[in-house]
Amino acid sequence: EPIKLRVADSFPSGHYLVKLIIQPWMAEVTRRTDNAVTFDHYPGQQLGKAADMLALTQNEVADIGYIAPAYVSDKMVTSEVAMLPGAFATSCQGTRAYLEVARNGVVGTEDYAPNRIRLLLAIALPQYQILTIKAPVLDEPDVKGVKLRSTGGAQDLTLRTIGATPVRMAAPETYEALSRGTLDGVLFPLDSVIAYDVQKLLKYSTANGRFGSFIVAYSIGDKAWKRLPAAVQTVMMQVADEINASACAAVERQDAEIRQKLKDAGIQFTAMPDAFEKRVTEKLQDVAAQWAKTLDGRGKKGSQALAEFSAAVQR
């Protein structure tokens, strides 16, 4: 008999990540099951804000939800390991490592199992860069006291560690804040620069910074999962694995395109000089170590997550 599932996310409809991840997955699952499984897709926060997606999936308001661990950092603590500064180099490397620890490692047993959800699709976004208005980031004095928008969490710590001043504000206010000097720059994934339309206001971007990342993940509720026939479960996982492998490469290509777009908009990408980059990397390793220690102190498995994730990145 036909199965219909509700899929919810908070991306604006037509967002490139939706096109790269969930739409092809839904289409392919429907195709391989001969239309036995179909989906109702609710994009753009129609069923709730990003932070509510976990609860909504647990309560079966949605069967499959865009559950980004960063938005539920109180419930998915160890996932942040993949978003720490310097955690990985490329999107595919980060994606593989996160899937590994979330399916077979400590992130799975700590973040997914207790929350009664199962990870289907995940992508680690390319590393965040620092974009500024007045001067490129080439040395410590260039960031000292510079006001940069941060989304909180480990990013606050990252910015403070390198001497910048993190400023929190609502995302829609970023444009105005930048245009009036309330902010001197942003710590952003490059695609957000375009999403918030702030490329005209910014002049410089780091080219090789590793200032953190973001995990985009779609998960299915355990109850919904258990109701599915085994054959459908197999198809869903197969398609998910295929897309997880291909989408990260597409995200990397997208990143190159975005960089070109930003260059066309007049943003200059400058690599941090080697000596400076080395000092920054050392400082940021402290951020990761401190993160793990804080979690251990709260009885969570911070050090274990860090060790497992680092090992997975090396593989």
């Binding site: 709730g48 932070a51 079966e60 504000m169």
Partner: peptide, 23 residues
Amino acid sequence: VGGMSMLTGILQTAPLSTVSAYE
């Protein structure tokens, strides 16, 4: 539309998330 499970799901999230906004 979706029975008690859906109703409590929404009632559990909507009140706090409506007011947890800086703007």
